[in-house]
């Protein structure tokens, strides 16, 4: 029998030249890979900021934020971002009105009422719904939801805010439902059982104990859902039309910030024109909106988190 000196073997393993080299090199390589995520952020900021800056040397910043007309394609163009923001706002408000009650209701059902079996059936369905490409949702909006709405309300035009708004809402339901359900499920069972033992019904437990305890996570899920709705592109490009306007009309064609970017880039925006640079100014505004929403969601989760 050979005598193995374990300590020696470990020492050999550690002193082996290639092992030593790998141990030193790996963290460095991995750090370089990790820094790509930082570079991506820098790339986005650099792209948006530099081109937006050029845009504002041609069109005044004051006009951009105060004018109420967006006529980028006109020979006498006007760049009032408010018109595009209004378009986005209409979609987001309708989507939120659909997604928040439905998403929260589904989350309450899954977390507090459903049996394990029902949960095992429903959750994959929500996952499938979350994985459907937005171009498919957009087609669904224009070929199914819009005709349905126009049948019920004949005054609505082919392109309107209601149909894409509702469909964007449906698109973010799975996200709100699953994040809210996570928040509610993480309320400890003892809290829930304490409430039930005092004679509260399930419903009273939900509204007086679970929802307040999970509020931070639930509100964060709403904010993230809204942020997703702001950035949603294909549904509004397909079903909302391309007529920017700073009005409150939900029944006629409109344009969102994302819709404008798609409209310009699907045509040939000649490099160096005002139209080309306006693309980045709109992109910057869009980026800022979603960034603020995402930071708000993170802040809410951190600040109001209940510790058990």
């Amino acid at each position: 029998m050979n005598e193995y000196n374990i300590r020696e073997m470990i020492q050999n393993n550690k002193n082996n030249k290639s092992t030593k080299f790998i141990e030193k090199a790996v963290p460095t390589i991995l750090f370089i890979i990790t820094s790509v995520s930082i570079l991506t952020t820098i790339g986005i900021l650099y792209t948006l900021l530099s081109e937006t800056f050029i845009f504002f040397t041609r069109v005044s910043f004051i006009e951009f934020i105060t004018a109420t007309e967006w006529k980028a394609f006109s020979s006498n163009p006007s760049f009032g971002i408010i018109a595009l923001i209004m378009g986005t706002l209409k979609i987001v408000v309708i989507a939120t009105m659909v997604a928040v009650p439905v998403g929260l209701g589904a989350a309450i059902y899954l977390s507090e009422y459903a049996t394990d079996r029902i949960r095992r059936i429903v959750k994959p369905i929500l996952e499938i719904l979350a994985g459907i490409p937005t171009v498919v949702y957009g087609t669904f909006a224009i070929t199914f939801v819009t005709p349905l709405i126009r049948e019920m309300f004949p005054g609505v035009s082919l392109y309107n805010a209601i149909s894409p708004g509702v469909v964007v809402g449906i698109m973010i339901v799975p996200m709100i439902a699953s994040l809210s359900e996570d928040a509610m499920s993480s309320v400890p069972g003892t809290t829930r059982e304490g409430s039930l033992a005092l004679g509260a019904t399930r419903l009273e437990t939900v509204f007086k104990v679970i929802l307040p305890a999970a509020a931070s996570g639930i509100i964060a899920s709403f904010v993230l859902g809204i942020s997703r709705a702001i950035g949603e592109t294909m549904i509004v490009s397909i079903a909302a039309g391309s007529t920017p306007g700073a009005d409150f009309d939900l029944t006629s064609s409109l344009q969102t910030m994302t819709g404008f970017i798609v409209q310009v880039t699907s045509g040939d925006a000649a490099f160096g024109t005002d139209l080309y640079y306006s693309l980045y100014a709109v992109g910057m505004t869009l980026f800022l909106f979603t960034l603020i929403m995402n930071l708000a969601a993170q802040w809410i989760t951190k600040k109001f988190k209940e510790e058990y």
Partner: peptide
């Protein structure tokens, strides 16, 4: 930064790709 990147709209990534 990574969790913020996850929230950037895909159309903005498109602008990044177009420019860079």
């Amino acid at each position: 930064n990574i969790s913020n990147l996850a929230g950037v709209p895909s159309v903005v990534f498109g602008l990044l790709g177009l420019t860079i």
